[in-house]
């Protein structure tokens, strides 16, 4: 009984992990610029890796490897935003302008395609 439950818990968690990793991949391909892509890239690390590691923890049961997977998740959660911020900040500093919608409440696709102007952006 417990084994079946454990098995299906692992399957569901892995499925969710794969799903969010897939969504993130789709997002990286579909989204228009580096800032928007950085958002979705962090999904892989948060929920994608999160569910996968939760599946690992459930599969191992209560032993030392479980502690390792929790620690892994902890470090992923610290390093992921740091890396995302570093990418976004360096993009901003090299003068990559984000694509922004003209009217923030208007969610059309005809985004205000900001022209890149390198000289004046710090």
């Amino acid at each position: 009984m417990i084994e079946t439950l454990q098995f299906w818990a692992v399957v569901v968690l892995l499925g969710l992990g794969v799903f969010f990793t897939f969504v993130s991949t789709v997002g990286v391909l579909r989204l228009p610029d580096i800032y928007a892509r950085a958002h979705t890239a962090s999904q892989t690390d948060t929920l994608g890796a999160g569910f996968a590691l939760a599946a690992v923890a459930v599969a191992f049961g209560w032993q030392q490897a479980t502690v390792y997977s929790v620690l892994l998740l902890f470090f992923v959660f610290i390093t992921n935003p740091t890396a995302a911020h570093a990418i976004a900040r360096s993009a901003a500093e090299t003068g990559v302008e984000p694509l922004l919608t003209e009217d923030p409440d208007d969610a059309d696709d005809d985004a205000n395609t900001a022209v890149e102007s390198e000289g004046e952006v710090q």
Binding site: P81, T82, A84, R89, A91, A92
Partner: peptide, 15 residues
């Protein structure tokens, strides 16, 4: 800033 970036949909560009 890290919590904001960790939440998808918001990304800290500068702090």
């Amino acid at each position: 800033a890290n919590s904001i970036t960790l939440t998808p949909g918001t990304l800290t560009v500068r702090a």
